[in-house]
Design a protein around this nucleic acid. Structure first.
Lengths: 108, 108
DNA sequence: GTAGTATGCCTCGTTACACGAGGTATTGGA
DNA sequence: TCCAATACCTCGTGTAACGAGGCATACTAC
């Protein structure tokens, strides 16, 4: 699936935070969840997902917790209160932008 | 109005092409039209608009035509066939992305 | 046994682009 | 005479998506 950098900006963070607001998840699981929840419309490459997660951790939006399951190391991420606020901001922005684009595209 | 770079990527080009697909317009006019058509949701700064127009001209999506009106020089832009194809692609991408985001946000 | 696929994490370099700040110039109204 | 609106432009900065590459383990099929 051809991703379009120039239309995806900010979206990965929004999607990840939204998924984590429902439950703790690990990276690989998040990748799958994004594909499924967007009905294959969006797929986050690992070169996008992992750096995004690290950045969000640095900024205090998520908290990481390593855990080994059947010989494999997973890094589980949980959303923080700060991350929840961020999610609120981002989804507000998204609604504003998406609403504006839709208004213009459908033009009166 | 605080613009959010990380959610706007690719959007300016899409909006401008869509407006030009209805009629020829000049830069300043486009800026106003974007604000109005998006119901003040989106405002393209000149540092975004003009470089975007130049890039689109270079890529053959629009054609520029200078015209002096009452002592002021305006640069009118018209969409090209190539630009129309580009518009089709971009709006398809947008629908895909926006649909995916909406599906995930509203999630079950 | 061993080859291939799925799981699971990571980083680096490139490219693209939004944005603010700054610059120039003319017109017209207070 | 000053200031807002019109109308164009560029440069530098910062952010972020993306592909390609790398590492390692588990499981399944041949």
């Amino acid at each position: 699936m051809a991703q379009n950098a120039s239309l995806m900006s900010g979206v990965p963070e929004l999607l990840v935070l939204r998924l984590l607001s429902a439950q703790e998840m690990y990276g690989y699981e998040l990748a799958r969840a994004v594909r499924e929840s967007t009905r294959q419309a969006i797929s986050l490459g690992e070169g996008v997902l992992y750096p995004a997660l690290h950045a969000m951790e640095t900024r205090g939006f998520v908290k990481a917790r390593r855990r080994t399951v059947s010989g494999r190391t997973r890094v589980y991420y949980a959303i923080t209160p700060r991350g929840n606020r961020r999610l609120g901001e981002l989804s507000g922005e998204w609604r504003r932008i998406a609403g504006g684009v839709r208004a213009l595209l459908e033009g009166t």
